[in-house]
Design a protein around this nucleic acid. Sequence first.
DNA 1: CAAAACCGACTGGCTAGTCAGTATTGAGCC
DNA 2: GGCTCAATACTGACTAGCCAGTCGGTTTTG
Lengths: 191, 191
Amino acid sequence: MQILDERKRRSILDAASALFATRPYHKVLLTDVAAEAGVGKGTVYIYFKDKDDLYRSVVRTGFHDIIDSIRQQTANSAGPASATLRDAIGQVVRYAYGNPDIFRLMRESHTAAEDTKRCSAIRQELAAIFQSIIEAGIEEGIFHDPHPDLTARFIPGFVRSAFIYGDNTFSVEELQSHILRYILAGLQQPA
Amino acid sequence: MQILDERKRRSILDAASALFATRPYHKVLLTDVAAEAGVGKGTVYIYFKDKDDLYRSVVRTGFHDIIDSIRQQTANSAGPASATLRDAIGQVVRYAYGNPDIFRLMRESHTAAEDTKRCSAIRQELAAIFQSIIEAGIEEGIFHDPHPDLTARFIPGFVRSAFIYGDNTFSVEELQSHILRYILAGLQQPA
DNA sequence: CAAAACCGACTGGCTAGTCAGTATTGAGCC
DNA sequence: GGCTCAATACTGACTAGCCAGTCGGTTTTG
């Protein structure tokens, strides 16, 4: 007997994200994905239900990876909310720089409204992490914000805005501090 | 002789934006666009070169409309940069609320990298408007910002973040002030 | 050696774009 | 105003080509 190979799954996922990031969905051929991944086309259908499932798996994986990395870093940080926030933002920025293809896809939703809904659960989870950090700061009395949920959604959006358009000549640290500058200024402003 | 009818062009554009906003690009049939617009399929090809041209026209029109509305409102405003900024942000928010379909498309780039480049000129133009407002404020001595170009890109991104995900239970004014709160806090913070 | 992974040539359905024919218009004239 | 007649807008049945997904055969491995 053979067993499904996790490395193969991963290489299909990698190939797919590289291609989806550079071409529109309908111009990405599964034949190309398979070739790029070094497997036969039929194999793709063993690991993924169909083209759409493959696409969504790429995006889902990206969110999971970011969320995990934030959770890991944040887990044993007992410092003030502002420090936690800095770290969490750093993770998102670092992920975006390390996985530009996937990050771009995560922030797209190629399928407009339909897809936005389908991915919203996991997207929501990321926002919720930021929201709880902000709320912790409010509890501490160092942050003020009438709409923490809205602000939470801004943060990944910041990275996106910087990252997706233009040549992005900034370093990880520059981007991280620029975002932090704006977020903290707003949060530390009295109500 | 007949003359091309601007109203017909417009109705095709409207039908297209409604459909592109609710389905992924490859699931939008030109037959459906034509039906929705109340014209024959062939007619679409008189007004637009092909499907891609139609899509990009929708997006381009959106940017032009926003840019125009900001220019119009801003033209005769001689007040401080902070007031100009408030007005300009208001225009973007108002446009997003008034044209949710088109706004969503403007912030997508269905074709990933390829399309990002193609639309970057007009997108850049919008960012440039915000950048020059910020720079005016720096000149006035009321703003400080190490990367005005980056901050400028954040602003439409803010609207996007608020607008695209979730139920968006906020009013135009709430969203406008929340964005302004963060942007001004950061800008007015000493370097 | 069998069970399951793997392969890639094949195909059926689907749709962007075409085009031959029809409808509509404006211009020039009375 | 109304008639004629190009000129061009408009139409939608049709087609060519493309590609997601299949499947019979092959290889791998426990």
